[in-house]
Amino acid sequence: MKIAGSAKLPFAAERAYAVMQDPLVLAKAIPGCDALEKTGEDEYRLKMKMVLASLSGSFEGKVRLTDSNPPRSFRMLVEGSGKIGFMKGDGLIQIASAPDGGVDISYEGDAQIGGTMAAVGNRMIDMTARMLIKRFFEKLAAEPA
């Protein structure tokens, strides 16, 4: 599944870039994140719990940041698996200064869903992914400038 969209952050480009690389911030912003431990250079072990309507499931996986080109762009790879299925997202995140002093973020990438979620959740995946991404950027935007 292709995922693409945009968001706004009320930060200067450098700050926006730094916020998105900060494991403490990411831990707060990734919806349902329980733990994010550094396991290597730009690589983290992720534990999260997804709760959506009556669905709930724990995932373990990793977050990797690559292709860093501060403060303009980087790639973010998130993958997780749990009893209810697995997911994998790989996207390029680009940061452009906006006239209002903040930044316009655009993201573009691929997401894969597998397991029971993929087999029975087709009609929900698109909206759910969008909502989770929206929540992620909302949390980031709440960080101090």
Binding site: A53, S54, L55, S56, G57, K83, I84, T116, V120, G121
Partner: peptide, 14 residues
């Protein structure tokens, strides 16, 4: 009607 199917698929485990 929404919750039980999710539980049977083990997508929900209250």
């Amino acid at each position: 009607m929404s919750l039980i199917p999710m539980m049977k698929l083990r997508l929900a485990s209250p």
